[in-house]
Design a protein around this nucleic acid. Structure first.
Lengths: 129, 129
DNA sequence: CGGATACCTGCACAGCTGTGCAGCTATGCA
DNA sequence: TGCATAGCTGCACAGCTGTGCAGGTATCCG
């Protein structure tokens, strides 16, 4: 391989447009780039976390995770939120593919459909420390 | 059961100011209240998730989690962020008690100090689905 | 000593986000 | 048929948040 040193397998991970930046520990920079992985995937993960970053939504998801499908009105009473606020949150979560609503008469019951978010909500709960 | 119905272990959980609201499935409301638990703790958890909700911060934490302490400049090169942006993110994370900075000469190396966030960043990474 | 480097801070600005209010549709019940 | 309930939506507003720029301090090297 006739490539220059900054292109060896351990170094080529840092994008070309940043290859000339000064670094303190060059190898750590490469390790970090490898650790971060695809930036698009990081953005997806960050967006998923942002769904849980609101107290209202987190409370709603906690409820859905533990007691199963629930109607909007019940969720509003349980969380102390406004009915419209619950609808708004559900619209957002449904758009993100986290919950799904099933209409029974004039009542709509929402349930968790995203396993990953479910794990996050329920599984990592013990890490509250 | 000598206690009135609204005080039995399964029902008294819904706050008095919402006790007169109409509900679809009353018992589910109570289960939900129990599932949500202390609202203050929910807020704390939501705030913790909000720290990971930014792609920049998440990338920084991924790097710190995997390669250990790193300098601001190296983090900037690895993530493609501005140096000032990294400083800003670190200020926020340090204020939240997630990272700590150790000064070595004119270089400041940050490291992860919050185990819970570390688990979140690293452990739940496989759930990317 | 003087310049360059590493980092921090303050400020102003744009963008997103949560919230409340009002109005609307649809369903169930008398 | 008429009314109350369950839920959705649009809009306007305040608040938070990320970002860039400019300037400041501390450290190292020649």
């Amino acid at each position: 391989m006739a490539v220059p040193p900054w292109q060896n397998p351990a170094m080529h991970l840092v994008p070309a447009e940043r290859a000339d930046h000064r670094t303190i520990d060059g190898h750590r920079v490469c390790d970090a780039v490898a650790a971060i992985g695809d930036m698009a995937e990081v953005r997806v993960r960050a967006q998923r976390y942002s769904l849980l970053a609101d107290p209202g939504r987190l409370a709603l998801l906690l409820a859905l995770r533990r007691v199963g499908p629930m109607a909007v009105t019940d969720l509003a009473v349980a969380t102390g939120m406004n009915g419209a606020a619950v609808s708004q949150a559900m619209r957002l979560l449904r758009a993100a593919g986290v919950v799904a609503g099933e209409k029974a008469g004039r009542v709509v019951r929402y349930r968790l459909v995203d396993a990953a978010v479910g794990e996050l909500v329920d599984g990592c709960a013990g890490v509250t420390e």
